[in-house]
């Protein structure tokens, strides 16, 4: 009799415990799911708040906001063209410098560098990504720009300023600060992103492929250019897009050295502005509602551009991952 009661009791406690476990499990799962939803909510919130904030400006200017380079707080006329132009030109120039150099660094680290030096040099390059952008900014303004103005810039103007076709891009006085300085500093900042991703995908290339090419008598460069790079192309492009996303949204480093001039400059050495620099410089001065709304619309445009670039980078890297996994 006593045994049966004990068993019954045990069964009841057991059922209780299992139920309690089940409840706690569901609770914990719900908690993690809620946190995951918070991430999505933050993203949705960014878009919603920017659209709401920009609405007065979108209503007032419509599409002409994108095509006008007016920026006149007194007359309440605003256009984003100068900022968009500066953002795109500085980012593309930075990419033009950083992509070949970044790939070169990856080749150096995987093929040329003596083994004991690979890790320290790799880490040193990655440190460039760790330095905060405000440091690039203050260094760019106080150290880089004055030196650049006196040395490299006059020389570049001298060399390229007289070549027909290029002369209009490379003419004008050397200011030190301007589109080109911002691009060069941006390129240093995004360099580690490109070289790190490129090195990682280079290391996924099967050694067999490389050995086969060497066996045919290829030189190291031919192996890199004809075998490794084509194999790793999707990864390199994905990494470059990720870096482009960073360059487009970079704020402080650019704000210091771009010169903050609201017009579409014809020379790459002239001062200009970018979307992020305009927001950083003018938001706290934006006293009227329309002024502030125009600046927020700039933020919306910036978010849209970087979203498109980052989303395509992700899709590219995901397909690559799936290919490597399957």
């Amino acid at each position: 009799m006593a045994d049966a009661a004990l068993t019954e009791n045990l069964v009841a406690t057991r059922a209780d415990t299992v139920r309690r476990f089940g409840r706690r499990d569901a609770g914990f799962r719900g908690l993690t799911g809620f946190a995951a939803l918070l991430v999505v909510a933050a993203f949705a919130g960014v878009i919603a708040s920017l659209v709401i904030g920009a609405w007065p400006s979108i209503n007032a200017f419509g599409f002409s906001f994108l095509t006008s380079d007016a920026w006149n707080p007194v007359e309440e006329r605003y256009g984003a063209l100068a900022s968009i132009y500066g953002t795109i030109v500085t980012s593309l120039l930075a990419m033009a410098i950083a992509v070949p150099v970044g790939i070169g660094i990856a080749i150096f680290l995987t093929e040329i560098c003596p083994r004991p030096l690979r890790r320290p040099i790799g880490i040193a390059i990655e440190l460039l990504a760790g330095i905060p952008s405000i440091i690039y900014g203050i260094w760019g303004l106080f150290t880089f720009a004055p030196a650049f103005q006196q040395t490299l810039e006059p020389w570049l103007i001298d060399v390229f300023g007289h070549i027909p076709g290029l002369d209009s891009f490379f003419s004008g006085p050397p200011y030190g600060i301007g589109i080109f300085s911002a691009s060069l500093i941006l390129s240093i900042m995004i360099l580690p992103f490109i070289s790190a991703v490129t090195r990682d995908v280079f290391e996924t290339v099967p050694p067999m492929l490389k050995e086969a090419a060497y066996g045919l008598g290829c030189t190291t460069w031919e192996v890199m250019w004809r075998v490794v790079l084509p194999f790793a192309r999707a990864g390199v492009v994905g990494g470059a897009m990720l870096a482009l996303g960073r360059a487009l949204g970079e704020t402080m480093a650019v704000t210091f050295v771009i010169g903050n001039a609201h017009h579409v400059p014809h020379s790459v050495f002239a001062p200009g502005t970018t979307i992020s620099a305009t927001i950083a410089n003018e938001f706290s001065e934006a006293t009227t509602a329309m002024y502030q709304s125009a600046v927020i619309e700039l933020g919306l445009i910036l978010f849209f551009i970087t979203f498109v670039v980052l989303a395509s980078a992700q899709i590219m890297l995901r397909t690559l991952e799936r290919r490597a996994g399957g």
Binding site: G249, S276, L302, L310
Partner: peptide, 9 residues
């Protein structure tokens, strides 16, 4: 996307 989104936004 949020990981690389412009911090000013």
């Amino acid at each position: 996307i949020l990981l690389s989104a412009p911090s000013i936004v």
